[in-house]
Design a protein around this nucleic acid. Structure first.
Lengths: 235, 235
DNA sequence: TCTACATCGAGAGCACTGCTCTTGACAGAG
DNA sequence: CTCTGTCAAGAGCAGTGCTCTCGATGTAGA
């Protein structure tokens, strides 16, 4: 029933179970990379030398397995972005922005199937479980924190003629209740959202082949776009 | 083998065949809207009161059916955008931009499954056939032509300090070989591409539920974003 | 008009899928 | 040393894409 929580494993049995869960996830990830979202539980079981029904001891359904992979993909992307951003000097705000964006792209290129699983079209029946929203917000949080620091450093400030729709202001105010984002003026958070949307639009377009036969050096193009976005945001 | 070309249909048989093809596509579109990309040929056949193997007289495979739906979706989106843009006074360049963007969003909201089929994650095995690239370029072409007219009207002009990477300049130059885009300076076309990426990033985020529990009035937000993009581009 | 051909729908069948249920083997706890 | 819970295996169900064969029927040429 469970899908591999149970911090350290109480006994021997629990440990071999946790190992089995890890193995299933690893093989499933491999299959995902090879054949995309139409993941076959039976094929995964076959690769593990067991019969399909045995997998159901560890995951109640195929969707449950996919959900776990989705959560872990969000976390992996978030962690990769956080690490890359943390490696840049705190005062180099533009550098932190650029490094974060590149980290997202690099992770996506390294794990295209998992990226597609997350940012591709959602399966119609599939409803994102609430455990995904936390990990999913890690990456945009990195971007917002950069702008928080930029505001605190006096590098970025809201523009006088930067007007926001009423409903958007209310939404932004709600987001700003998060203590991590304290001090960000609403117009600046709006810019962060714009950057966030643009960034993932860019990565998705590249990964989903929209630049094929159009842009030769996609890495250079990405860098150009990301720098322009940084300038536009005020970094 | 064929998928419904043959201009007017030579005899009675050819005509009922064309009607059958249309019916299959219509039912398939309905199923797509109801259950997403995992379209079942057998279910479509069942809805049509015939057996699955009969469908193969009209489409050689499920992928072929999907490809036709993809091409037609590209065309429908392109046409919707073209019509909306054409309805705006030629000299109202900013209005043309805004109308085009809204047309894209409106079409996507009206046909979410078809939008996901086009702009969602591509099926790994599936290779986009060359017949899709033409229809796929209709929408971005609308945006580029707006900027062409804006340049011709003197409203938009390249900025002195707008520098582009070398490889990107070569790519843009190749795109500018299209006579429709004659006269657009490379930096301005780069801005159009930025707008194009941002626009579809925005629509995809909304459609794929990324704004859930975050932005309440997505229509207002979209309008705000699109206007800001227009300003950023110079319209 | 009659015949030969091409096209079509139906049905059976293959290999595959997710998932359920039952059975028998085994390990850990009392 | 039982007894209980966990596990892998197998059979089975309903569904899938796709192929092949077989009659029925419309179409075109003689």
């Amino acid at each position: 029933m469970e899908t591999g929580d149970e911090p350290p494993a109480r006994g021997l049995r629990a440990r071999v179970r946790a190992e089995m869960v890890d193995e299933i996830k690893a093989v499933a990830r491999r299959h995902l990379a090879a054949e995309g979202a139409n993941l076959s539980l039976r094929a995964v079981a076959r690769d593990l030398g067991m019969v399909s029904s045995a997998v159901y001891r560890y995951f109640p359904s195929r969707d449950a397995l996919l959900t776990v992979l989705i959560v872990e993909a969000y976390d992996a992307l978030g962690e990769a972005t956080e690490r890359a951003e943390a490696a840049v000097a705190r005062r180099d705000l533009r550098g932190r922005w650029i490094a974060s964006c590149h980290a997202v792209r690099d992770w996506a290129l390294a794990h295209p199937a998992e990226y597609a699983l997350i940012f591709g079209s959602p399966v119609p029946g599939y409803a994102a479980p609430p455990d995904t929203v936390g990990p999913a917000s890690r990456t945009p949080a990195v971007l917002a924190v950069i702008l928080r620091d930029a505001v605190a450093a006096g590098v970025v400030s809201p523009n006088r003629n930067e007007r926001l729709p009423r409903a958007l202001r209310a939404d932004l105010k709600r987001l700003l209740a998060d203590p991590r984002f304290a001090g960000i003026p609403e117009p600046v958070l709006a810019r962060a959202m714009t950057g966030w949307i643009h960034l993932f639009g860019l990565v998705s377009f590249e990964l989903f082949g929209r630049f094929n036969d159009m842009i030769t050096d996609t890495g250079q193009f990405f860098d150009y776009q990301v720098r322009a976005m940084g300038t536009q945001i005020g970094l």
